[in-house]
Design a protein around this nucleic acid. Structure first.
Lengths: 247, 247
DNA sequence: CGCGACCTTGAAGAACGTCAATGGTCGTGG
DNA sequence: CCACGACCATTGACGTTCTTCAAGGTCGCG
C-alpha cells in the first residue's frame, strides 16, 4: 500500500485540466487522494464481470481493455484504454460490473478508493462535472464503435480504429508523426470490431498493399491519414478533444 | 413557454427516486425546474448531429431514438428511449452533438434548460450523482448493444432487444404480462441492430413460427420469455434496475 | 379510389466466418 | 548456442449468414 503523494496523480490532474481549468484547491484535493499502485502482466484481469469493486483504476502506463465473454468462447472487447484513462469510473455509481477489465500489455495502474472519489465529488462539484464528462466521452466512443460494427465494412472499422487510437495517444503525447505503438494482436482487433482474426489478417494485408499503413514489430505508421479517415468515415467530433475554450 | 409547476416533472422525480431516495429539498428543487413542453409527430428531429443544444429533453410520452447517418443512406440507431428518459442528458457536459435525436412515435417531451440543470447539480451533489448514474446506465446499454451487434446472430440480437425493451417498459409501468406496445418498423429494428430490413423480416417470421412472439397491430407479446432470453443471451444486470437497497 | 408506408417473397451474390494446416518470432532453459 | 514451446501471423478451401435487388402484396388513410 503506497499512499505517498507521488506523481501518479499528476496524470489525473493533467487529464482533467485538459477539459476544464482546475482551481488550486481542486488540484490539491486530487493530489492528496490515496492511491495504491500495481504493475500488471499482459492479460491479467483487473476487475471481473459481476464483481463489486470498491475502487477505481487509473491507468498510468500500458494499454487496458474492457470486454465481455459470451458462450462458446466468443469475446467482445468494448474499449481500449491508455494512460490517463479511468476505465472503470462507472463503478463509482453502478455497484456491480457488467463486464470485465484487463491489461493488454504490461501496465501500471493506480487504484483510488470509491470512498475518496465520492468525497471528492461531493466537495468539488467542478471535479464531479469533469469526471462525469469523462464517462460521457466514454459513452460517445461506445456509440461510435456501435456505428462501425453495425454499419461499416471491415476495412472501414479497422481504419477507424487506427484513427481513433492515434488521436487518443497523440492527445497524451504517446504518438506523433502518424506513428504509434500497436500492442494489439489481430485477434484483439477482431474481438473489438466484431470480426474473425482471419478476416482481420486479410484486411490488414490489403491495407499494407495499398500503402495505407506500415505495421511491424508492434508499431503502426499511418501512411495516408486522409485515405484512412475517409475509409473509416472518421470524424473526430465524438472524441470531444476540443481544447478548453476559456483560458 | 410553460413554466407552471405542472406534473411533467413528477416523471423525473419518480425516475430518480427509483435509484436513490430524494430529500424534500431535492424533490422541491426538481419540481421547480422550468420546463417547456412540446408535442412531436413521428420522425421529427429533436436535436441534430452537430448541434449545440442549450437544453435537455425529458420524454413524457412516446418513443424516441438516437441515431447517426452515414454515407449512402446508411443509418445506425444508437438507442431507444421511453417516458422518463432524458436521451440527450450528455449534452449537459458535451457541447456539440455527435449524433441526432428524433421521435419514433407521436411524442410529448419537456425541455429543461442546461443552465437550470447545472445549477441544480451544483446545489445538490446527490442529484448530480443520480443524473450521472443515469448516463452511466445509458453507456451500459450501449455496451450491451455493441456485444450484440458484434458477436450475436440476428436471432440473438432481436430476441435481446425484445427482452431489453420489455424490462425498460415494465419498470415504468408501460408493459405487463409479457406484452408491450411495439411501434417500431422492421427497418427501425434493422437500423438498430445492424441488419437489413429483409433479414429482420425473415427472422421475425421465424420467431413467430416458433411461437416465441406474437406481433400484430403494433403490439408484441412474448410467448416464451425463457426461450427469448436464452436465445439473446439476455442478462439484465446491465440495466442496473435493482431497487434501492436502503429504504 | 389511390397513394404511401410497410411487409413479404424469391433469387443471386458478397462479405465474412470456420476449419485446418503451415510458418514466423521470441523468450526460455538446457 | 541451440532446441523447444507458446503465441501469433498467414494461407487455402469451403460454408454460411446476411445483403442487395426487384417485385408484389397489404393496410390505413385522405
Amino acid at each position: 500500500m503506497n499512499s505517498a503523494p507521488d506523481h501518479s496523480l499528476n496524470m489525473l490532474v493533467r487529464k482533467l485540466e485538459s477539459v476544464a481549468p482546475l482551481s488550486h484547491d481542486e488540484r490539491q484535493a486530487i493530489q492528496s487522494l490515496p492511491v495504491m499502485t500495481r504493475i500488471l502482466q499482459p492479460g491479467q484481469d483487473i476487475v471481473r464481470d459481476g464483481g463489486q469493486p470498491s475502487q477505481c483504476c487509473l491507468v498510468l502506463d500500458g494499454w487496458t481493455a474492457r470486454y465481455k465473454l459470451l458462450s462458446e468462447g466468443r469475446r467482445q472487447i468494448l474499449s481500449f484504454h491508455i494512460p490517463g484513462d479511468i476505465p472503470d469510473l462507472q463503478s463509482l455509481h453502478l455497484a456491480v460490473m457488467d463486464h470485465s477489465l484487463c491489461s493488454m500489455t504490461v501496465s501500471t495502474v493506480a487504484f483510488i478508493p470509491h470512498e475518496s472519489l465520492r468525497d471528492l465529488t461531493a466537495r468539488f462539484p467542478g471535479l464531479a462535472a469533469a469526471l462525469w464528462r469523462d464517462t460521457l466521452i466514454d459513452a460517445a466512443i461506445f456509440r461510435e464503435w456501435m456505428i462501425g460494427i453495425g454499419r461499416k465494412s471491415a476495412h472501414g472499422r479497422i481504419a477507424h480504429l487506427f484513427c481513433e487510437m492515434y488521436l487518443k495517444l497523440h492527445a497524451v503525447g504517446l504518438a506523433d508523426h502518424h506513428r504509434m505503438p500497436w500492442p494489439l494482436t489481430q485477434i484483439d482487433i477482431g474481438d473489438a470490431l466484431g470480426l474473425s482474426n482471419v478476416h482481420v489478417n486479410r484486411v490488414l494485408q490489403n491495407l499494407r498493399n495499398q500503402k495505407l499503413i506500415i505495421l511491424d514489430r508492434r508499431n503502426l505508421t499511418m501512411g495516408d491519414w486522409e485515405g484512412l479517415s475517409e475509409m473509416g468515415e472518421f470524424d473526430p467530433v465524438y472524441l470531444h478533444l476540443e481544447r478548453r475554450a476559456a483560458a
